[in-house]
């Protein structure tokens, strides 16, 4: 991470000149400010830009979201909207039977909830398994380990839109997958027109896109386990399976918990790549919560910001619980006395 010394001279120095000049010009008024506020008062100055942006674009929306969820109508600005109390929540929860989305007033919401639920359960399980196996394999005595690590990490940086398009192209009628099946003597299939395959595709593609990231965190955890523990275990005649369950897994647990919670939080919010890949279809088979909120709030013919806000607050509550879970687990882990 060391700066290249030669890089500092020459061109970059010329490039930095206007910045140095600007910073120098700023110095005089700021010295005056510093005299007025004192040294510790300058802390507020340094904090101000971040806090302003943060307050306007994060805190404020967070609080008025509750207000939105208690108003109705299609008007955009809060003062133009009519107060309806808990009507939006009541509408979301108005169901004949919670198991059957068709019996609900807001049936797409419940479809999205159910889809997201299944997606989270399956995607999180598979993601953890695939990442863990990959991390274990990359942690072995391996030729060119950094190359293999890069192979699995590569899709992580791709934009969700690119990921969606890559796989849309592969899963389409004349795509690579059908070509492969055709060469093996099977019939081609229009995968993304099939409700079940489409759902499976969203799981597979999201794992493909993100597993490298979690593999990396797990691999870092595995590499932090001292090698001599395994040598001691080898001297003790420990079989590999027992060494895995009794040494590797317990020592990897902190990283594993972080990964589980991160995967959970991301899975609940899944949107981008699915929106490009399937658009929520066919029908509503891959409609997930974020897309429901987006469409209810912005894209629908009759948009309903209040309903979208209410749904987003319910989703936010789930995320808060998951994050607190992570913090809680992290703390109990620290209390355990390690690190």
């Amino acid at each position: 991470m060391r700066m290249d010394e030669s890089g500092r001279s020459g061109l970059s120095q010329i490039a930095m000149m206007p910045i140095h000049f600007l910073m120098g010009v700023l110095d005089a008024p700021l010295r005056w400010l510093q005299r007025a506020t004192g040294i510790n008062g300058m802390a507020a100055f340094f904090l101000l830009p971040n806090m302003m942006i943060f307050g306007v674009f994060v805190l404020l929306p967070f609080f008025i979201n509750f207000a939105y969820s208690m108003t109705g109508g299609t008007a955009l600005f809060l003062p133009d909207r009519s107060f309806v109390g808990a009507d939006q929540y009541a509408r979301l929860f108005d169901c004949g039977s919670y198991i059957d989305p068709g019996s609900c007033a807001e049936d797409t919401f419940w479809t999205a909830v159910r889809n997201t639920g299944w997606f989270v359960v399956l995607q999180v399980t598979l993601m953890i398994l695939v990442s863990l196996v990959t991390a274990l394999i990359l942690n072995r005595e391996l030729m060119a380990r950094s190359f293999w690590r890069a192979v699995f990490f590569f899709p992580v940086l791709l934009s969700p839109v690119v990921v969606g398009l890559i796989w849309k192209w592969i899963l389409q009628r004349q795509g690579l997958l059908n070509f492969g099946l055709y060469s093996l003597g099977f019939d081609p299939h229009v995968w993304l027109n099939d409700r079940n395959w489409s759902f499976a595709a969203t799981i597979g593609v999201s794992i493909w896109a993100h597993m490298g990231f979690y593999t990396l965190i797990l691999l870092a955890g595995l590499q932090a386990i001292p090698k001599d523990l395994y040598e001691a275990a080898e001297m003790d005649g420990t079989r590999p399976a027992r060494a895995f369950w009794r040494i590797t897994l317990p020592l990897l647990m902190p990283n594993l918990l972080v990964v589980v919670v991160l995967v959970l939080i991301r899975a609940v919010q899944i949107f981008d790549e699915v929106y490009v890949l399937t658009g929520g279809g066919p029908g509503t088979s891959t409609l997930y919560l974020t897309q429901y909120i987006y469409e209810t709030g912005f894209a629908a013919q009759l948009r309903n910001p209040g309903l979208a806000a209410a749904a987003s607050i319910l989703m936010g509550a789930v995320l808060v619980v998951l994050t607190l879970l992570q913090l809680g687990l992290g703390r109990s882990e620290k209390k355990g006395g390690r690190k």
């Binding site: 040598e231 080898e234 005649g237 009794r246």
Partner: peptide, 20 residues
Amino acid sequence: VPAADRGLAMVFQSYALYPH
């Protein structure tokens, strides 16, 4: 012969105690 079957025991420099 694998390490475990040689009937030897080792004390490591870092002790290699299982921390958990």
